[in-house]
Amino acid sequence: MATGTLITVAPTGAESTKAEVPALPVTLNELVTTAKECEALGAAVIHVHIRDDQARPTLDLGRLRDTVAALRENTDLVVQLSTGGAVTDPEADRLAVLEAAPEMASCTMGTVNFGDDVFLNRWEFIVDLHGRMQERGIVPEYEIFDLGHLTALQRLLDRYGLPAGGHVHVDFVMGVPGGMPGTTPALVACAQALRDLPEGTTFSATGIGRSTIPVLLASLSAGGHLRVGMEDTVTYAKGRPVDSNMQLVARAVGFAQLAQRTPLRPDEARKLLGIPPRAAA
Rank of each mutant, 00 (worst) to 15 (best):
T3R: 14
T3P: 01
G4D: 15
E15P: 00
S16P: 02
K18F: 03
A23F: 04
L24F: 12
T27Q: 07
N29C: 03
T34N: 12
A43W: 00
Q54L: 07
P57V: 04
G62H: 00
D66F: 00
A70F: 14
R72P: 12
E73R: 14
E73T: 11
T75A: 04
D76K: 15
V79E: 07
D89P: 02
E91G: 00
V97C: 12
L98E: 03
L98A: 08
A100C: 08
S106I: 13
T108G: 06
M109Y: 06
F114M: 07
D116Q: 07
V118Q: 10
W123E: 11
F125Y: 02
I126W: 01
L147Y: 05
D158C: 09
D158T: 15
G161R: 07
P163H: 08
G166I: 10
D171V: 15
F172Q: 06
M174A: 04
P181V: 13
L197T: 06
E199H: 13
A205W: 02
G209P: 05
R210Q: 12
S211I: 06
P214S: 03
H225R: 12
H225Y: 08
V234N: 12
P241H: 07
V253R: 12
A256F: 14
P263D: 15
K271F: 13
A279W: 01
A280Q: 13
A281F: 04
A281G: 10
